[in-house]
Amino acid sequence: MNAAAPVATKRSRRPIPWTVIPFAAILTALVLMAIFAPYIAPLDPNAQNLLARLKAPGHEARGAVYWLGSDELGRDVLSRTVYGARVSLLVAFASVILSGVFGSVLGMIAAFYRGWVETIIMRIVDIVLSVPAILLAIITVAVLGPSLYNVVIVLALTRWPRYARVAYGQTLSVANMPYVRLSRFMGAGWLRLLGRHVLPNIAGALIVVATLEFGLMVLFEAGLSFLGLGVQPPTASWGAMLSTGRNYVATAWWIATFPGLALFLLVLSINLIGDHARDRLDPRSR
């Protein structure tokens, strides 16, 4: 490490492997689709046309083309799939942010203060991790009623321990680093220590957890909606579409296939990007 070494070459950028690029493109496309859904969807996702029920892809009725067919109420599957991306991404994003922030803060505090604070927080983590998520979801929905927000709450309530565990473990090791000690010896308070010295150094691991959780959250939302515990009709959700599509799978395969395909592509691309992020950010796999 020669101090006079050329500074221009600092932080060489490793190229993104070719396997990740197409999936990054798919993810970007799906996110854009969700944001600009009203401009992309050819038809109103909730407009029914009972004369055009269960029509195969390419069906034309009243001047409208059902490119991906129509469902049991004559709604456009393409438009509903486009709008369904909104629900999936919104729920996943909101629940990852909520549970990530909550879990990370608690994990950091537990590792930083040790003692009884640590015992209480980490035992709660153990308890929450041992409660079946579906059971908790049913209870929460029974109490609060099914809705988009309650899905987010359920997911945040069940998923924060993952972040807490990772933040806890990482903070334990980082808090013993000499630079954290030095900063404490310089008179830094706990907020500065955690915010300026600990958090940036454990953020990599937390981002990896968050990306992998993001894919799971998409699946969980679909699962809850499939069970009728999630987003309520007529709002388009991939999980709910899969659920109704299941009844018609023999006669109208397109109702379940296209939202399923979208779900598959979204989760696959998120997971591949998450794996790539782990290769880059997680100190253990370096």
Binding site: P178, Y179, P200, N201
Partner: peptide, 13 residues
């Protein structure tokens, strides 16, 4: 000041 000069500085700052 400590004996581990490199480890005593935050690597990300």
């Amino acid at each position: 000041i400590f004996q581990e000069p490199v480890a005593s500085l935050n690597p990300l700052m």
